[in-house]
Design a protein around this nucleic acid. Sequence first.
DNA 1: GTGCTATGTTACTGACTGGTAACTAACCTG
DNA 2: CAGGTTAGTTACCAGTCAGTAACATAGCAC
Lengths: 215, 215
Amino acid sequence: MSAKAAVVEKAEAAKGEAGVKPRVRDRIFETACDLFYRHGIRAVGVDAIAQEAGTNKMSFYRSFPSKEDLVAEYLREQEREYFDWWDGTIAPYKGDPLKQLDALFQSYLGMTCSAGEAQAECRTSRGCALGNAAVEIPEDNDMLAGIVHDYKSEIRKRLRKLARDAGARDPNALGDALMLLMEGGYYTRLTYAQNSGPVAAIAKAARALIEAHCA
Amino acid sequence: MSAKAAVVEKAEAAKGEAGVKPRVRDRIFETACDLFYRHGIRAVGVDAIAQEAGTNKMSFYRSFPSKEDLVAEYLREQEREYFDWWDGTIAPYKGDPLKQLDALFQSYLGMTCSAGEAQAECRTSRGCALGNAAVEIPEDNDMLAGIVHDYKSEIRKRLRKLARDAGARDPNALGDALMLLMEGGYYTRLTYAQNSGPVAAIAKAARALIEAHCA
DNA sequence: GTGCTATGTTACTGACTGGTAACTAACCTG
DNA sequence: CAGGTTAGTTACCAGTCAGTAACATAGCAC
C-alpha cells in the first residue's frame, strides 16, 4: 500500500520534472547506492533494496543479473561521481597546480565539514564508498577488488602528477603524503560526526606539506 | 578426525611449551581474532570460528554468551595490543616528545612495510581492526561503536598531547594532522600490498608536518 | 481491438546464520 | 572408585539470504 503510493508519487514527481518517468531499474539503483553507502554492502539485502525502491525482488532480478553486478555498478558510479567532483574542483585553476591542490583540499574540507544540509547529496558522512567496500568484499573477489584498486591508483596518480607539476622536489612522496591525508580524512569520518573530527585540520596540513616540498 | 588431531596437537604443543594447556576458550578467541581481522567480522560465522579452532559451536557458546560479546572482546584486545605497541615504542625516548613522535612513525613504517615474515603477529596487513569494524557494525550498535570511538579518541588525545609537549604552535592541529596520516596509512593498506602503497611516505610526511609546526 | 513490454504478486528453493537442547566421553581431584 | 568439570557430538529451531518459477496486470504501439 504505502510502497505503491510511494512509487506513484515518485513517478509523477519525476514526470512533472523532466517528462521522463524513472524506470524501475533506476529507482532500484539509486536506492541501492544510498543503502550501500549508509549501511554497508553486506548489511543490505536485495529484498530490502527492492522494497525501499517501492518494488519487489523479481523486478530487481529483471534489471540486475546478480547482487554482485549491482555492487560493481555502485562502485563504478561512486568513482565517476568522485572524479567529476575532482575535475570540477580543479577546472577553474587550470595551469596552476598549487591552486588546484589548494582547491581540492579546501573543497574536501567544505564537503566533510559543511553545515550538513546536503548529507544525501554529497556522500561523505560515512567515509569513502570504495574504501569501505574494500573492507567488506572478500579477498577472492577479483572484480570488486580490482575496481577499488583502480580507483585508489587513479587518485594516487593524479596527486603525484599535481605534485610534480607544482615543482615538488620529491613529487611521488608529496603526492603519497597528500593521499594519506585524504584517506585518513575519510577513514575518520566513520567515527567522528560532522565538524568534530580531525578532518578539520586537513587543508592546513596539506598546505604545510606542499610548502615543505616546494620551498 | 583431522580437527580432533589438530586439537590434540595444539594442546600438546602448548603443554610442552609452558606446561599450560590452552583452554578451548582461548583457542576460539585467538582463532576469532585472526579470522575477524583477515576476513571481516560479518564474513566470519561462529561455526567457522569453532571449526577453525578445532572445536564446535556448542563449545563456542559455552565460552561466549553471543557473537557480539566475542566481537567486543576482539576489539578491546586489538586496542590493548595497539597501545602496548605505542607505549613500548615511545618508552625509550621519555621526556623527548619529538623523538617519541619520530619513533612512532618510524616504527609504524617498519610494521607496515616490513619484510613480511610476521604477518600474523603484527596485524597491519589489512588496516586498522577497529577502523574496519566501524565500517561493518550497524549504526544502532552503541556498544561496538562506542569501543571504536573511544579507541580513536584516545589516539587523537595522545597525538595532540605529544604535539603540545613538542612545543607546536597549534598542537591540536598538528596532532590531528598526524592522526590523518596514520589513519590514511591504515586505510590504504586495504588496497595496497606490502611496500607498494603510499604508506611508505608517512615517516617523512610526519616529520615535515612536525617541523612546520615547531619551527 | 491485438499484441508486446514493463511491472507487480505470490510462493518457493537451498544455503547459511546465530543460537539451543540433550546426551556422551574424557579428565582431573577427592 | 566417585563426582564434578570440561569438552565433543548430533540434531534441531527460527530467521535471513540470494535467486527462481509461474502467473497476473497495466499501459503503450500498431
